[in-house]
Design a protein around this nucleic acid. Structure first.
Lengths: 240, 240
DNA sequence: AAAGACGGACTGTCGGACAATAGGGCAAAT
DNA sequence: ATTTGCCCTATTGTCCGACAGTCCGTCTTT
């Protein structure tokens, strides 16, 4: 008979109010927020309450403080931030390696195909450099896995699709820790990755979408093979 | 010669400490957090500081308060929460409709194919009911678009892949507002959606992955057509 | 002009306070 | 025996006020 009466704490109301202003672009990226005390006066709440609201927005990546600055500025959430939120969710939902891998099998080949169609010269240069950096990175170097991730990221950038980039980044973050183990364990992994990267780059260079898709597909499939060889069960939940 | 000294505010340290305990499963879902005052004593900080930390975790969906409860409990981020974070990011990055649509074209057909392979009886029933609900929903009903979203969501559930579900949900949230406009503007939209849903359900029922993929592909492609007919430019940035 | 001193504006943190309320226990009422 | 009413305690939401640290612009000194 009655609707539940809405009873949100003030800090929620304040943060929603600011959030709304940001999402509706009344506050634009780079704008400096008013000082906490002024916000408190405008909202007629105490400064502590404003601070609680700001912490929420800060965590969402909607406001940020440039290093060594005093006031907060409006910002848009970095891909890495969103991805890390997604990673937390996936970890806590005990998502297993195959699930992530399956998602990669869906997304990465298409991203490669898009990249092949849309890449420019700068993309090619970046990809080539990254691939060479991986090839030359010493055996057992813990940064190798970051270079692999960078390759995927640059390919995403070349695809010119922010949405897919965001989704990809989460997957990469989830995979990184175990991928590092895998590369160190499986002797032939480095060579296979280097080879796959080369072929993908060639396909992208030639704007050959089908070829790019095909090789990326093989590349991702290879990851799973690597895990099997390394004796990592596909059902291992991903972890921090 | 020297590394930059790390200077994180106390509220960050506190929230990271708790976050770490949650991600490492030392605190499990459903556990009640200690009271704010006790946390403050343990961390040797003021209660306000603890509260700022809690606001961060609350916003990340790592802790939550069941409606009408006093203490906070550890929780895992709901898909909707993560998706809404992603949606904010996409809105602020001025991602256009085509970008979202392109991502759908990548993800949805494969999800449909997976669903065809893995669905059980309950999935079929749910999908059928949802499709009927859409067919019977009155012209111009603002909830129609929610029913369409529900259909996609249930298909995601049937695919048994949490990762893809999470990614899908963000897309759906981004599209919903403009989709509502489109359905109301384009006369033949409802019929075409109903038809596509029927064919997808049939393919899923028959465990025919290729057919499911094909029809979902058509279905999503149709959305774009609908937007064109409705005179909505593909480059329109998605909005709140 | 470069280097240092000064003051204002904010933030990070703290101590303390108080009203509101969830939850438990216990007694009265049906 | 279950419901209702009442009291008490633990805990949250919010407020007040305070102070040190620090960024930044200005003013002085060399």
């Amino acid at each position: 008979m009655f609707d539940p009466v809405e009873r949100a704490p003030a800090y929620i109301k304040v943060s929603s109010a600011i959030e709304h202003k940001i999402l509706s672009r009344a506050l634009r990226e780079g704008d400096v927020l008013p000082a906490e005390l002024e916000l408190a006066q405008q909202f007629r709440v105490h400064r502590s309450t404003v601070r609680e609201a700001l912490r929420q927005l800060e965590n969402a990546g909607l406001v940020a403080r440039p290093p060594g600055a005093k006031r907060m500025i409006v910002s848009r959430p970095e891909a890495a931030k969103v991805a890390s939120g997604m990673r937390h969710a996936l970890v806590l939902h005990e998502v297993s390696f195959v699930d992530v891998w399956e998602a990669m099998m869906v997304i990465e080949p298409e991203v490669a195909a898009l990249a092949a169609m849309r890449r420019n010269q700068a993309d090619l240069v970046a990809l080539t450099q990254t691939s060479e950096a991986f090839r030359d990175s010493p055996e057992g170097d813990p940064t190798s896995v970051n270079i692999v991730a960078l390759f995927f990221e640059q390919l995403g950038a070349a695809s010119r699709n922010q949405v897919l980039v965001l989704a990809k980044q989460s997957l990469a973050q989830c995979l990184a820790p175990s991928l590092a183990r895998m590369i160190d364990t499986v002797p032939q992994a480095r060579a296979r990755i280097t080879d796959a990267q080369r072929r993908i780059i060639n396909a992208v260079r030639d704007k050959n979408a089908d070829e790019a898709r095909k090789w990326m597909s093989k590349h991702v499939r290879d990851f799973k093979r690597g895990y099997e060889v390394a004796g990592i069960s596909p059902d291992t939940p991903i972890s921090v």
